Amino acid sequence: MDSFLGIDLPTWWFLLIGALVSGYGILDGFDLGAGALHLFFRKEQSRRIALNAIGPVWDGNEVWLVIGGGALFAAFPLVYGIILSVLYLPFILLLVAIIFRAISIEFRSKEPMKWWRQFWDISYCLSSTSIALLLGLVLGNLIQGMPLNANHEFTGRLLDFINPYAVLIAVTVLSLFMLHGAMYLAMKTEDRLYARMTILINNTSKFFILCFITASMATLIYVPHMQAIFHNHPVLFVLPLTAVLIVLNIRQSIEKRRYLRGFISSSVTIALMLVLFAMGLYPNLVLSNTDPAGHISIYEAASTNKSLRIMLLFAGIGMPLVLTYTVFVFWTFRGKVKPDEISY
């Protein structure tokens, strides 16, 4: 097995895809959270400010999802095919929701009629909420495993992906994105809208903490395989402990109205939750909850070593460019939002 810096190539790609998914969760997470909160703003000016807060960055943030999907297809084509086949319906709904979110943002300001703008406001809110929930459903099913036989064939029913644990994870993801988005909007707004955001941040933080505690307990009770690595390597228990401390720091930051610190903490929370998920999964990419022979490991699903090596070279060139562009956009559009005639 070829390796780079002492780590085999499939593991490198497992880490790279995890980094891409984390980047997407952190960056597009606050966009989706802001969209899910959109109908809580009653005034036209408030909704325009909220839209313009994410206006310069939302489409660039979605690039991380595209790159992550492309990397999964290139590095682990077997897993790409199985996940999209088994979870066909939620991925189709996810694609539809992504399309409607994009056109809602772009179409809203094209006409001045009140009914027109209200329609696209509702569409924007529902599509953003749906994306967060569908991402959570996919994550929940990957955590607990899916009904696959030894030939990696799906043996369940079409709607098996809608189960109590996956729904709980979906709601938890939505609550985290809403909190993440609320703190981002607080950093970009002022005056009465800022005061409104402080109330929403307080409420969404309580909602997230409740979901976080419930999801953690459910995982400990009903998904024991996610704990195996911590039994085998007790030193790694520092990571879930750190996640708990970061969540507590979010609440402390909110009480002191230090929303930048809170936003950084929610970003770290997203990353840590995905790291814990990856640790419970590795070296597998897909788990079967009916037949252990149905598990798909990174070694079984990986492309050839030559392909992985060449693609890793391109990733080493492309990733810094994407990061540089992302930092440049956020730096260029830093500060409070002040909409004008050509804004959303």
Rank of each mutant, 00 (worst) to 15 (best):
S265V: 00
R309S: 15
S307N: 12
S303T: 04
P320T: 02
A271E: 03
V322L: 10
E255R: 13
I264T: 12
F314T: 08
E300D: 13
S307F: 11
R257Q: 15
Q252M: 11
A315R: 01
L308E: 09
D291I: 03
P283V: 13
F328M: 09
N284T: 05
G280I: 05
V337P: 03
R309T: 10
T304Q: 01
V275R: 04
M273K: 01
S265W: 01
R334V: 02
F328S: 07
Y282I: 00
S303Y: 07
D340Q: 13
I310W: 03
P320H: 02
I264V: 15
V337K: 05
S343T: 11
M279V: 02
M273W: 02
A301T: 07
Q252N: 10
L287H: 09
T332L: 12
Y325T: 06
A278E: 09
L285K: 10
L308G: 11
V286C: 08
D291S: 10
T332S: 06
L285N: 06
Y282L: 09
T326P: 08
V322K: 02
I310G: 01
L321Q: 06
K306H: 13
Y344K: 06
E255H: 12
L260W: 12
N305S: 15
A293V: 08
K336R: 13
Q252P: 00
L287Q: 05
M279G: 06
G294F: 11
D340K: 13
I298P: 00
I264W: 15
L287I: 14
N289S: 04
N289Y: 01
F328D: 00
M279A: 09
V327K: 14
A278Y: 11
V327Y: 14
K338Q: 12
L260Q: 07
L287W: 12
L281G: 07
R334E: 03
L287M: 13
V268M: 14
T324I: 12
N284I: 04
R261N: 12
I264P: 00
L308P: 10
S267V: 04
F330H: 15
E255I: 03
K338G: 00
I264M: 14
F330L: 11
R334M: 02
F263I: 04
K306A: 15
L287A: 06
R334Q: 10
S343K: 03
G294Y: 11
V337N: 09
G335S: 01
M273S: 14
S253G: 06
F263N: 05
Q252K: 15
R309V: 05
S307R: 15
A293Q: 15
S253F: 02
D340T: 11
R334L: 05
H295G: 03
S297Y: 02
M311L: 15
M319G: 01
Y344D: 11
G294S: 07
Y325I: 11
K256I: 10
L308W: 08
G316N: 12
D291V: 06
G316M: 08
L287P: 11
N284E: 10
I296E: 08
L274E: 10
R258P: 07
M311W: 15
T304P: 04
I270Q: 12
V327G: 05
K336S: 09
G280S: 09
